[in-house]
Computed example of a mutant assay.
Amino acid sequence: MRLIEKVWFQGHSAKWWMVPILLPLMVVFAGLSFIRRLAYKIGLLQAVKVSVPVVVVGNIGVGGNGKTPVTLYLVEKLTEQGLKVGVVSRGYGSNAPYYPYQVHAESTAEQAGDEPLLIFQRSGVNVVIGSDRVAGCQLLIEQGCDLIIADDGLQHYRLARDFEFVVVDGKRLFGNGLLLPAGPLRETKQRINHANCVIVNGESSWLKQAHNLDIPALTMQLTANKVVNVKTGESVKLSDFLAQYLVSEYKVNALAGIGDPKRFFNTLEQYGFTIARAQGFVDHQTFTVDDLQSFSEDLPLLMTEKDAVKCASFAQENYWYLPVDAVFLHTSNVENITAVITELVKLVDEHDARDSYELKR
């Protein structure tokens, strides 16, 4: 974790002086963000509404909080309803030969970015990346998509949207509550109330304390039931992996290049692993062979699925990743997310009916 993130989320006492120094820059950032959003609200800047419903999955802060598992969950459930779903993403850290760029089977993480490649490999749906997400949506529409999910698109106001999910990390929440760069927030906490639904990743007391929350709130957990070999693709149940592949008290090495690496390491320990050595990297870390040479080959090296797509080209036999899925466990959560899925399907039906009416006229 970068030092500034320790200040944001852990109140790093040794560097407390960094926040006051950054406050003037925060004021500038807040002013520019307010003016930009106001310009879209009053029509000085025009949001572009594409010809199919757009669903945004985003957050008000920086760093990983579970957006990708939520996107994959929605893709799966909406596909089960018979919809052709596409995903548009900025493709953070990508170096594609052109934009908008459609992710395909031969794409690399360097070309597509780690999360878009992960979404494509897991779901098989059309995924397009590029900073111009309106152009990305048009490409998906040309391929017959009924509905588009904008992954991490909450602040991309040029793209009009029909439904917004805000995902919140139940553990780290909003850090010190300040805007960038003094804190981790891109927008204030009040922005959540302008969305359609908030999803909290992990149990949190925040929902009980958020008395002024005016939108549906759901709690999810990330669960895993298998590990997958990065090099061979072999899939092994977690229980079998613990029993057959590990010796010496289930010891493993672990790495994570995500927003909160410690969360991944805690997850491994909860599943029964003993971590001999854990190393966290910055979010979206571009891995090389040298980054992983210091890990012992005698122990399995466990990583996240997002990290695995960047290590596939030089993976060793002892590299494994832990795929996770978003799960809504409580009955009320399951009923509410089912209702939300139904509402999203209705968006497509209403849109199709509107188009049909326009054609008849």
Rank of each mutant, 00 (worst) to 15 (best):
F273M: 14
R90V: 12
V128N: 05
P24L: 00
K84M: 08
G183Q: 02
S13P: 14
T338A: 10
D290H: 12
I215F: 05
Q279C: 07
V340E: 00
C145A: 11
N201T: 11
L72G: 07
R186Q: 04
E343L: 09
D325I: 14
F281C: 01
T71K: 03
V85N: 01
T71W: 02
V125P: 02
Y98C: 10
P20K: 06
L3H: 01
F163E: 01
R172K: 11
Y101C: 08
G175Y: 05
G63V: 07
Y271P: 14
D240V: 05
L222N: 08
L154T: 02
L299M: 09
S248T: 14
Y319H: 09
I275L: 12
L78V: 03
E297C: 06
G58M: 05
R354F: 13
L147Y: 11
T223G: 10
V200Y: 00
T274L: 15
L140S: 06
C197P: 00
G61Q: 14
I4Y: 08
R277C: 11
V200R: 00
P20R: 08
A112D: 02
L139Q: 15
K189Q: 13
L23Y: 07
L159C: 00
G31R: 05
I258Q: 01
G183H: 06
K251I: 10
E187C: 00
T71E: 03
I341V: 13
C311G: 09
N225F: 04
E234L: 10
L38N: 09
T232D: 07
D114V: 09
D146Y: 03
A112C: 04
